[in-house]
């Protein structure tokens, strides 16, 4: 089976990606969260695979192998258990696969709005930062200096040279 020229993934791999991502991060209507199998998020994932294509393909193949071809037939409990088990021992492909899915998911406008963030780049607007409570520093200000001054030896003699030795 050939690969999609744009994504590098075959139709079967795209299907597996959608099913696995949807099990990793399912939609939650009550919290206003789309699933990672949402078409827009899926498009972002495959668009951003780039240098991660090889480990992502390896991850998809490994998960499908672990499921013995039956991932689609599993109930949600079974899918989640399989995914948790595979990620625990999946090594670098698992870490890369997780990063790719989460990286695309947590920049989706709907996701960011639902978790209370503005869907925008940091620049140029930036963010506000409170000064905090500087009065807490009063407990430290009055302390004696406690860094070791090498100009004062054990017997109270100057030892530092202020230059080369």
């Amino acid at each position: 089976m050939g690969n999609d020229a744009d994504t590098g993934l075959s139709a079967a791999e795209l299907g597996a990606l959608r099913a696995i991502a949807g099990a990793m991060i399912p939609a939650d209507g009550g919290l206003g969260m789309p699933g990672a199998d949402d078409p827009g998020i899926q498009a972002d994932i495959v668009r951003s695979l780039g240098r991660d294509l090889v480990p992502v393909r390896a991850a998809l193949a490994a998960i499908m192998t672990t499921a013995a071809g039956g991932f689609a037939a599993m109930d949600p409990d079974g899918r989640e258990a399989l995914i948790e088990r595979w990620f625990a021992g999946g090594g670098e492909p698992a870490a890369t696969f997780a990063r790719v899915i989460l990286g695309a998911y947590y920049r989706d406008d709907r996701v960011l709005l639902a978790v209370g963030m503005e869907p925008r780049a940091p620049f140029p607007k930036g963010y506000a930062l409170d000064q905090g409570d500087w009065s807490l520093l009063d407990a430290v200000r009055g302390r004696q200096a406690f860094w070791r001054d090498d100009r004062i030896g054990a017997a109270g003699t100057a030892t530092g040279t202020g230059g080369e030795r």
């Binding site: 949600p76 989640e80 989460l102």
Partner: peptide, 23 residues
């Protein structure tokens, strides 16, 4: 950031996959 927190959470086991993920 939001994605980095999720990636770190998944790597450390603090952030589960599946229906418990969002909460």
């Amino acid at each position: 950031g939001p994605a980095s927190e999720a990636i770190a959470g998944a790597a450390s086991g603090r952030l589960p996959w599946g229906r418990a993920h969002h909460r």
